[in-house]
Design a protein around this nucleic acid. Structure first.
Length: 723
DNA sequence: CACCAATCCGATTTA
DNA sequence: CGGATTGGTG
């Protein structure tokens, strides 16, 4: 049997599968058969007599874990239900559920999603009376982002602001106060946010050595996928769970690190051999996915990275078509070109072999509209979440209150439809409940009979402890009249969502597990019903496309400000992450890669449309990497030279403002801080072009006035001197 | 004071 | 399409 395994794998993969002496680090390049290797290792371990219960498989999404387990099960013709698998967060949630009181929490806790977190943050900000009437005061989402990032990077708020958003420095004190109040609020109300799951698990494992030891015994084999995207606390958790590292395997690819924005540390993977000196390193570099021309392009993309990766993927696959670079006049005509391309490609394959990828959720709207118009089915990943739809949140709020009556955001949700009752009264009610102030509770109940009814139902259900689906049925009964009143025109459509929710609930025995699962791994709208037969084009953000692959991949909006995102334009590290993001996007393609560059994009200022420059990542690519097409003013695509001959390209704003061709790679002269302001001269920026330096901002930033872009503050290592 | 409706602005990426 | 903010009403 062992022989079979070896035969079906290449030597590196085989080593990754059977090596079991000590810590194992697998550097798995894009498309190098990583999923397959992990699946084989799972199968191999079980064949060697390891009990599935002894394996812990930590992945980035539940789907990834399931895929690996499914493949492994097929290999050895045996179910692997006993393997503990899932995301760090879901694993943490399942351990913490049993030990919440040890952490100073009520015996049950609720996991908040982003809207809940916003709600709570708004609450504490109001309590502190901060930010009222100050337009520049950071928004809730911004503050939450800062809190999370400061925790994940384990850095002061002030320090973080100094490094990343100096313009918010004046608010450092206020943000710090809010962060503290927010942190104190959560345990009081039995709430955890995503970060709490990780930090509380770490705290628990450190405080309860017996539990840590138990988990180490139980999970003798710890496997971690996408290790390059773990942050510091995750790395420490792995360390706590894996002990001396025997039986541990971590898998990742430094070139595919795309979660620095939430505190991921590539260092975790780079320094792994130092942390565990007896590490065996295996490199999977042979690519089984993409045709060579696609790899040529992705290799070129990485060649221009400032921190070089030792990556040179090679493919055994036969030659395929060159990637296409397609210039369109606007993002509107881009949508048309994309749909035309989908139709052309779909003559040869199923729709689900085709994916359209983009940087941010909203960028696919024009394509979605066109697809709807011509009646082509599609499915969008990484956009709005199923559980974030208003009606779903409504009913979930009641369920949450059964588990945790102190859940303030759930109360807010449950009573918004009660006339005359707003957030203030609700907060008061919740507080009264929490403090056991019966008088106040009765008072509110008397004034608002609807609240009394809801509360009675919740109390009944808490006493009766029905299964999740039964509880949901009761709640739906109660909710139905409100529901039909609230969504008079489209409640049939929303009903389908509620039915789907019931279906999911039926798969759970415990309410807490059901709720945790929904917040941690929200299902896709439409459900998984007969998804095998259904055919649809996939639309996805690049982040959500991680780990997946398609025969054909179309990437849209490859212009500066969109991809790379405008938020990354003046931060060197962020820009590098955008580059890796594009690398991830391109390496999803097996046979065909289409890169779409609109010459203008919609922008609500500037009266609709705004000229756009091709993404610097694309401009840097050697010409021989791709085949270039350009849309003419009649809307037809022509090979580039023909288009040029037909009409002068000067009409295209893109070609006019492009920075002059420059050898790719490192910047010629690093800019040094001039001692005398008078020596300020001109400089050049990769994206904004030439500009006049007007001010030096110690320690390492400049104010620069760029033609056409105005004043910008830029990091010094991002500029080159001009004579 | 607390709630509600209208309005305007503005859009990363995720567990 | 959402949210935050604002001004009007009970």
């Amino acid at each position: 049997m062992t022989i079979d395994f070896q035969k079906q794998l290449n030597p590196a993969q085989w080593q990754a599968v059977h090596s079991s002496q000590g810590p194992l680090l697998v550097i798995a390049g894009a498309g190098s058969g990583k999923t397959r290797t992990i699946a084989y290792r799972l199968a191999y371990l079980v064949r060697q007599g390891v009990a599935p219960e002894n394996i812990l498989l930590l992945t980035f999404t539940r789907k990834a874990a399931q895929e690996m387990l499914h493949r492994a099960a097929r290999l050895i013709e045996r179910e692997l239900g006993g393997v503990a698998g899932g995301t760090f967060h879901s694993f943490a949630s399942s351990v913490l559920r049993r030990y919440a009181p040890a952490l100073g929490y009520p015996d049950r806790f609720t996991i908040m999603d982003s809207p809940d977190m916003r709600e709570v943050l708004g609450q504490v900000r109001n309590d502190l009376n901060l930010g009222k009437g100050d337009k520049a005061f950071p928004k809730k989402a911004t503050i939450l982002g800062l809190i999370s990032k400061s925790r994940n990077k384990e850095m002061d708020i002030a320090q973080l602001l100094e490094q990343e958003s100096p313009h918010l420095l004046p608010y450092a004190g206020d943000v710090q106060l809010i962060a503290e109040a927010y942190a104190a609020f959560k345990p009081r109300h039995g709430l955890m946010d995503y970060d709490d799951l990780l930090y509380n698990l770490e705290r628990l494992l450190r405080e309860r050595e017996d539990l840590a030891e138990f988990l180490r015994m139980r999970h003798g084999h710890v496997m971690v996928d996408e290790f390059q995207d773990t942050n510091r606390v995750q790395a420490r958790l792995v360390q706590l769970l894996a002990g001396d590292g025997r039986g541990m395997m971590v898998v990742g690819d430094d070139a595919q690190s795309i979660y620095a924005f939430r505190g991921a540390e590539v260092r975790n993977i780079l320094a792994f051999p130092k942390t565990y000196p007896d590490t065996t390193i295996v490199r999977l570099e042979e690519n089984y996915r993409s045709a060579q021309p696609i790899l040529d392009l992705t290799n070129a993309l990485l060649k221009n990275a400032t921190t070089r990766f030792e990556k040179n993927l090679f493919s055994r696959r036969a030659e395929g078509p060159k990637p296409q670079l397609i210039h369109t006049i606007s993002d509107q005509t881009q949508a048309k070109a994309v749909v035309d391309k989908i139709l052309e490609l779909s003559r040869e394959c199923r729709l689900r072999d085709i994916a359209v990828l983009f940087r941010a959720g909203f960028q696919s709207y024009p394509v979605e509209m066109l697809l709807n118009r011509i009646g082509l089915r599609f499915r969008k990943f990484g956009g709005l979440k199923f559980t974030e739809a208003a009606h779903i949140k409504d009913v979930l709020a009641y369920l949450r209150l059964i588990a945790n009556p102190a859940d303030l955001p759930a109360w807010q949700r449950a009573v918004v439809h009660v006339k005359g009752l707003g957030p203030k009264t609700c907060t008061g009610f919740c507080k009264a409940l929490l403090e056991g102030d019966q008088k106040k509770v009765a008072q509110v109940e008397k004034k608002f009979p609807d609240v009394a009814a809801a509360f009675a139902l919740i109390n009944d259900l808490r006493r009766e402890k029905p299964a999740p689906d039964a509880a949901l049925e009761r709640i739906l009964e109660f909710y139905r009249p409100l529901f039909q009143e609230r969504y008079p025109d489209d409640y049939p459509r929303r009903q389908a969502g509620l039915d789907q929710l019931l279906q999911i609930a039926a798969g759970f025995e415990e309410l807490d597990a059901f709720l945790a699962e929904l917040t941690l791994e929200s299902p896709e709208e439409g459900g998984e019903v007969d998804s095998e037969q259904e055919d649809y084009v996939v639309l996805s953000t690049v982040h959500s496309a991680k780990g997946l692959e398609w025969k054909s991949v179309l990437i849209i909006d490859l212009v500066n400000g969109r991809f790379p995102s405008r938020h990354a334009l003046d931060k060197a590290d962020d820009l590098e992450e955008e580059r890796r993001l594009l690398y991830v996007a391109c390496t999803r393609a097996r046979d065909y890669l289409g890169l779409f560059v609109p010459s203008s994009v919609y922008n609500r200022f500037q009266g609709g449309s705004e000229p756009a420059m091709p993404s610097l990542f694309v401009s840097e690519l050697p010409l021989e990497c791709y085949e270039e097409w350009r849309e003419d003013y009649l809307g037809t695509l022509k090979p580039r030279d023909a288009a040029k001959a037909g009409r002068p390209t000067s009409r295209s704003p893109a070609s006019k403002t492009l920075p002059p061709p420059k050898p790719s790679g490192s910047l010629p002269h690093p800019l040094h801080a001039p001692k005398d302001p008078k020596t300020f001269g001109y400089c050049r920026h990769k994206i904004f072009g030439r500009g006049k330096i007007v001010e030096f901002l110690p320690p390492n930033r400049y104010r620069v006035n760029f033609t056409g872009f105005g004043l910008k503050t830029i990091m010094a290592d991002f500029l080159t001197m001009e004579d």
